[in-house]
């Protein structure tokens, strides 16, 4: 017996519905799993380091800016990798394998002598601390200290992050100024004894 066109269409649609209904729970499940992993470690697979760039070892110490005592349980974020680390009872993070990223602005003019990283430290009851320009070198062991300031109720009316910008190393600044110095406009003159 030949099936009518309507019967064929109904059977095809039915099969399609079966397939969709079968796959739907799996798709929602996988989406739910993905969002759960995002909440836990949102950027765990993100690594912006370019090929040929190196890493250094970094350890961050967080201290109370007023008492100079170590702060336990502060969360440090390395912005360039978006990874997070907690400080221990001595205010120290574990050793971090951190990338050495030099600014591309100067790359073809004067090679920067060190890379720079940006860190943010968070802790309940303290002002957020943004630490820019942390110096990094390939294969080198580096450490840095972040000062955090306790929020004093009544005194701190306007609570905003504290920023600390680590300057470029003076040896590189000397090279940079000499690189663009014109012989007819000496200024302080070339580096000399």
């Amino acid at each position: 017996m030949k099936q009518s066109y309507v019967q064929k269409l109904i059977r095809k649609r039915f099969a399609a519905y079966i397939v969709v209904l079968t796959l739907l729970p799996f798709s929602t499940c996988s989406a739910a799993t993905h969002s759960a992993s995002d909440t836990k470690a949102p950027y765990s697979k993100y690594d912006p380091v370019m090929i040929g760039k190196g890493y250094g070892n970094l350890r961050v110490k967080v201290i109370d800016g007023r008492t100079q005592k170590p702060l336990e349980g502060a969360e440090i974020v390395v912005l360039e990798t978006e990874r997070r680390y907690k400080t221990d009872v001595n205010g120290l993070t574990p050793w971090i394998k951190a990338p050495v990223i030099r600014s591309s602005r100067y790359r073809f003019l004067v090679n920067e002598l060190h890379g720079q990283l940006t860190l943010i430290s968070y802790k309940n009851g303290y002002r957020d601390s943004i630490h820019m320009g942390v110096r990094m070198n390939e294969g080198a062991v580096n450490k840095t200290t972040i000062w955090q300031y306790q929020i004093a109720p009544g005194l701190d009316r306007r609570i905003e992050p504290v920023v600390y910008i680590e300057p470029y190393h003076r040896l590189w600044l000397i090279q940079l100024a000499d690189r663009f110095r014109r012989p007819s406009q000496l200024g302080e003159g070339y580096e000399r004894p």
Partner: peptide
């Protein structure tokens, strides 16, 4: 003083720096 990269910097020796 800083001196110059990849260089023995003899002029600094002459200056005692």
């Amino acid at each position: 003083r800083a001196g110059y990269e990849n260089n023995p910097n003899w002029q600094y020796r002459n200056a005692g720096i």
